[in-house]
Amino acid sequence: MQVKEDINEIRPIEKDEFLSEIICLKMDAWRLVQICAVRIEDGFELSYTFCKEYRMVTLRLITKEQEEVSSITQIYPCAFMQENEMKELFGVPVRELAPDYHEKLYRIDRETPFKEKG
């Protein structure tokens, strides 16, 4: 029995309205689904996916390589695992991350192994 079609909405978002948009989602009781980083040329493409009932929305943030990104752990405390992972594997500079594992989430030999291709 099908309730809703699988909507796959990706909404690009600017950096200055990013945190306010996430606060709005939290007020509306959306659930944080996943955070994902993709390496693109001279920067990162960050996807923050949220879910409410069966609707799913992805916020897409494009950042420069050295540009700091605010952590959303102040709003969604459960984001800490995935933001730490993003910081550690891709080297995305995340600001005000709580708790910050300081590159000790995974016990790996190489720093930011996912940052460069190959």
Binding site: M1, Q2, V3, K4, D6, C51, E53, Y54
Partner: peptide
């Protein structure tokens, strides 16, 4: 009440479930 099988991927669209 949230179960992604309700989205009806694979054959779940034809099957009866709650």
């Amino acid at each position: 009440e949230y179960d992604t099988r309700m989205l009806g991927y694979a054959a779940y669209g034809d099957l009866d479930m709650e």
